[in-house]
Write a protein that binds this DNA or RNA. Structure first.
Lengths: 195, 195
DNA sequence: TGAAATCTACCTACTAGTAGGAAGGTAAAA
DNA sequence: TTTTACCTTCCTACTAGTAGGTAGATTTCA
């Protein structure tokens, strides 16, 4: 990719893929150190504590996600296409194993024992995603593109849960195709019958 | 409760609630030791390695789950009631925090770095649950109780993912009620219109 | 020159796991 | 009946290795 990446970005990138693989307790400064060829103490220079490192990482992740989701809204005029391309994003990530699991879904599993500063940031991402989905669904319903059985906020929660559950199943069964087999029908179900 | 629980059962019970809280890497022999008032070395006597301990634990969990699910099929004649009482089981577990997360869903998150002997057992539970759900849905469809848009195996995967995703959201938002807000509509959707 | 980045070297606490033995029960041979 | 043997359970005391984190010297670079 790029050699332009700063050390702290390399640290965050490495930490992120380690978290995606094994969660908060599944990686150490030594792992990062080995991966990018730097001493452990140098990582502490950039991120004094593990909680701080992961806090910054989750903040960055949420910002990237928000930027990506908002750009989908600009790129596609139809809420149906916005939703479809969101699902498609994860389908691709899982299929090519570039990001086989959502960082925040992973961390949410461990919620009970995360440092509070990390836990609150994970919650912030969940809120942000739920809000985006709800607003896409609401707009779609107003345009007659979607037919919602429940309020958009609740349908958004249902969809988000389907996405996370599908990630989990794809991982458990080691079958990337399972993701879209689960999510696509859930998304399609929302489409109003053709006019 | 019971004082009849053997030491090894106490070890398994404690390990299970620690895994539910923090996953495979989220607990240690020292934690169990402190919780049940026994020395670390004594735990190694019962379970020589951590991988072995968790393997036995997951086997036991799957057996208990299979027994519970099969007893639901005997207890309730209607597939609709069988499904409803399965969902109700988790709703109760989450609401009273007795088992706020599925052991195997937790472990499935960490799949990538689980010892193979544990990973295969987690997969076995997922298979077992998917099979039970598929057969309940299939029977219900044959009886005209359910109307399935997809083959029962696929609908079972969709339902299972909804349950796991809902657990995750309930935990992330620290809102037990969110579980049934997500799962109940998904289960209700399958019911055929009244005859 | 001065600040940022990285290093060596270290610390304390904890990790899974081991060695070896004491206490108690069971069972069978003397 | 006693003695010998064995088994299970739990213990103290230990190992080698890893965890997150720190102090302080050295390098790099604007």
């Amino acid at each position: 990719m790029k050699s332009t990446a700063s050390t702290s970005e390399k640290i965050l990138d490495t930490a992120q893929s380690l978290i995606v693989a094994g969660g908060y307790n599944g990686f150490s400064y030594a792992d990062i150190s080995a991966a990018i060829g730097i001493r452990k103490a140098s990582i502490h220079h950039h991120f004094p504590t593990k909680a701080e490192l992961v806090s910054v990482l989750v903040d960055r992740y949420r910002q990237q996600a928000e930027a990506g989701l908002n750009s989908l809204r600009e790129q596609f005029s139809s809420p149906a296409e916005q939703l479809r391309s969101y699902v498609n994003f994860w389908q691709t990530c899982i299929r090519d194993a570039s990001l086989p699991f959502c960082v925040c879904a992973m961390l949410a599993c461990e919620m009970q024992m995360l440092p509070e500063e990390v836990a609150s940031r994970v919650r912030a991402h969940f809120n942000s995603l739920a809000q985006w989905l709800a607003s896409v669904l609401k707009t779609g319903a107003e345009q007659g593109v979607f037919r919602l059985d429940k309020p958009p906020e609740q349908e958004a929660q249902m969809l988000m849960a389907a996405v996370h559950g599908a990630m989990l199943s794809a991982r458990a069964f080691n079958d990337p195709g399972l993701f879209s087999a689960i999510v696509t029908p859930q998304a399609t179900r929302l489409l109003a019958p053709a006019r």
